[in-house]
Structures are given as C-alpha cells and as structure tokens.
C-alpha cells in the first residue's frame, strides 16, 4: 500500500464518523458514505468538529487540519467509491445490510480493494460471503471513540487472504493504531471477556454479594480498572449491553453471556444509564461520556 490511499467509510454514524476522522487525519483521502445527504452531512460535521478541536489543542498543525478537511468528502453514491483502496464498513449491525453492500461494491471497485468490516458481534466470514471475493474481507473492530482509542482488533475470516491481512496491517500502521490479531469468533477479544464479566458483576449484585457501590469500589480499587462495572454499564447503556450480550449468547450458548434478569428489568423500566438519567446510579444531567 502506498503511504496515502483512497479510503471510503460506509455509514456516517458514531463509528463511521470516528473512523473517517482516523483515516483523514493520517493523510488518506476519505469518502464518508451514507444513505441520505442528511446523515452524510451530520457525519462530516462530527469529523470536522473533531479535527478543529485537535488543531485547537495543538494535536494537529493548522496545515494538517486544512489538508484533512480538504481530503474529506461526503457521498451518497456508491459509484463514487470506484477508486478506493480500502472500504471500511460501519453501517447498522445487520448481516443482510452488510452483505448486500459488499456485493454491490464488487461491481464498482477493483478486485484488490480491501473490505474492512467494523462489526461487533456478527461473523466476519458471514459478512464476507456477501462478496464474490471473500478473501479481501477483514474484520477490523475499532473501539468507541475511534479517534481516541488506540486499539483495533483484527479478525480474519475463514477465507481472508494473507495479502489482505498484510495490507490491513500496513493500513493500521499508517493510521497509528495498535493491532491485535484474533479469530473470527463471537465478541473477538474485548467483548468476549467484557460481557461475561459485567454479567457476573450484575449477578453478584442480584445475589447480594455486594452493593453497586462496594463492587465498584472493590473492582476499581484493586483491579486497576478505570471505573467499576456499574459505572461502565451506565455509560455503555443497558439496552446496548443487553443487545450485545444476547447476540453473543445466541452464538456461544454459554450461560455466562446470557443477560441476567436485572438487565431486562432495567431496560423495561427505561433505566438505561446516563442517557436516560438513571441506570444503576442516578444523574442530574444526561450528558454523555466524551461529549
């Protein structure tokens, strides 16, 4: 891969706009693609705001900021992606939507164009089956917020080719990410261990082994976690935790992944966490972490 490439990000939501920021600030020409002008514009604004803030904080020079902005393009036409070397998919977590997009892109881009999927819980191999060239498909799981989090989990599907793996590593190096290599297994590494951990903490709370405060204090104080499990769940959102846990449980059939009853009770009650003002704890404002 040449030092700068043509990159496309599919889906201009939370992750897509963050990944576009990562690509464009590393000097890659980046197209941010979504279904409607509206969503594209919203994603572009998020990226531009982040770049402006980075310039203000001195993390980028004003020239780097300008170049990045000039390299950032919005689109609602898949055909605009014809010249892309890397396409990073960050659309809804829906297998058919992801497969369909890769299938349509087959007819537009070169055979050597890399397809990256940012799926959290779906199988990379299943998504790759949407393309006539599954060997070019690689799982690249970014963390949220993508511009700030160093880690990308790279998961290789059954048919992922060595060249696709190698070029992916070069791309990740070009955008300054730290890569770990894992299998195409549910939850990769981080969610694979985080979800049962959080479920176990919820079960400990359910069974009265501790209080939310005592468990948070013990975990934070002794394990070197940045915050306790219930503070984290309030940030993640109980609805999201439930969704991810259920999707992993459906694939792994290991009871530790099954959300304990308290999760469903909290979701039913609307106690989703910070975003609704109440989860395990109550919040005066519903400012979200990081915003």
């Amino acid at each position: 891969m040449t030092k700068t490439s043509n990159v496309a990000v599919l889906g201009a939501g939370t992750m897509g706009s963050g990944i576009a920021t990562v690509a464009v600030r590393a000097g890659h020409r980046t197209i941010l693609y979504d279904l409607t002008e509206d969503r594209v514009e919203r994603g572009l604004t998020t990226t531009r705001d982040f770049l402006a803030k980075s310039v203000k904080l001195g993390r980028l020079t004003p020239e780097q900021g300008e170049t990045a902005n000039a390299n950032l393009i919005g689109s609602t036409e898949l055909t605009d992606l014809a010249d892309c070397d890397v396409v990073i998919e960050a659309v809804f977590e829906d297998l058919e939507v992801k497969k369909d997009l890769f299938g349509r892109l087959d007819d537009i881009v070169a055979e050597t164009t890399l397809f990256h999927t940012n799926t959290s819980t779906l199988s990379v191999t299943a998504i790759a089956s949407g393309s006539r060239h599954p060997e070019r498909v690689v799982g690249t799981h970014y963390c949220n917020p993508a511009p700030l989090m160093k880690l990308v989990e790279v998961a290789l599907g059954r048919h992922t080719a060595d060249w696709a793996h190698r070029v992916t590593s070069e791309f990740m190096a070009s955008v300054g990410k730290t890569v770990v290599i894992t299998k195409d297994m549910p939850g990769f590494i981080v969610n694979r261990f985080l979800i049962p951990w959080e479920n176990d903490c919820i079960r400990a709370l359910e069974s009265g082994l501790g209080t939310k405060e005592s468990i948070d204090a013990a975990v934070k104080g002794n394990l070197g976690h940045p915050m306790g499990p219930f503070r984290l769940l309030d940030i993640v959102g109980m609805d999201i935790h439930q969704q991810v846990a259920l999707r992993l449980y459906e694939q792994l059939r290991d009871p530790r992944f099954a959300p304990p009853p308290m999760v469903e009770r909290m979701v039913s009650a609307g106690d989703l966490g910070r975003k609704t003002g109440r989860g395990f704890y109550t919040y005066d404002d519903n400012r979200l972490f990081g915003s």
């Binding site: 963390c143 989090m149 880690l151 976690h225």
Partner: peptide, 9 residues
C-alpha cells in the same frame, strides 16, 4: 494488549 487498550485496565 486488547484488554488494556480496549478497556483501560
């Protein structure tokens, strides 16, 4: 590395 960087442990 994944658990350190991904979760801040």
């Amino acid at each position: 590395v994944a658990l350190r960087l991904g979760l801040g442990y």
